[in-house]
Amino acid sequence: SWSRQVGRALDMCSAMILVLSPDGLESENVDDEWNYYLDNKKMIVPLLYRECRVPFRLHKLQFIDFTRQSYDTALSHLVSALHVIQQ
């Protein structure tokens, strides 16, 4: 099933890219996924795609901001952050 596949992928992946937007914050699935990672002390890289009110639990994480810089600049910041995690 879809939810079993997602659950398996959540456990298999070592870290998460969380795409934040007003729709992302309204999604129950997205909410469950990032809370699952935080509860299991797994790494999250939040990516601010569209302006929204960031949940309190995510405040201490460093964001890659796609709203205030070009796509290419933000992408290169994201790639650097992900390469550090991969090592």
């Binding site: 992928a9 729709d23 999604s27 890289v45 795609y49 994201l78």
Partner: peptide, 30 residues
């Protein structure tokens, strides 16, 4: 990397996944 996102953001996320794969970063999208 697991990518968590809302359906409405899918076009952005799909482009992002292509760009990350080009840089040898594997992502999982549902």
């Amino acid at each position: 990397f697991f990518v968590s996102y809302a359906r409405k953001d899918q076009p952005f996320v799909e482009q992002l996944a292509i760009d990350l794969k080009r840089r040898s970063i594997d992502v999982w999208l549902d």
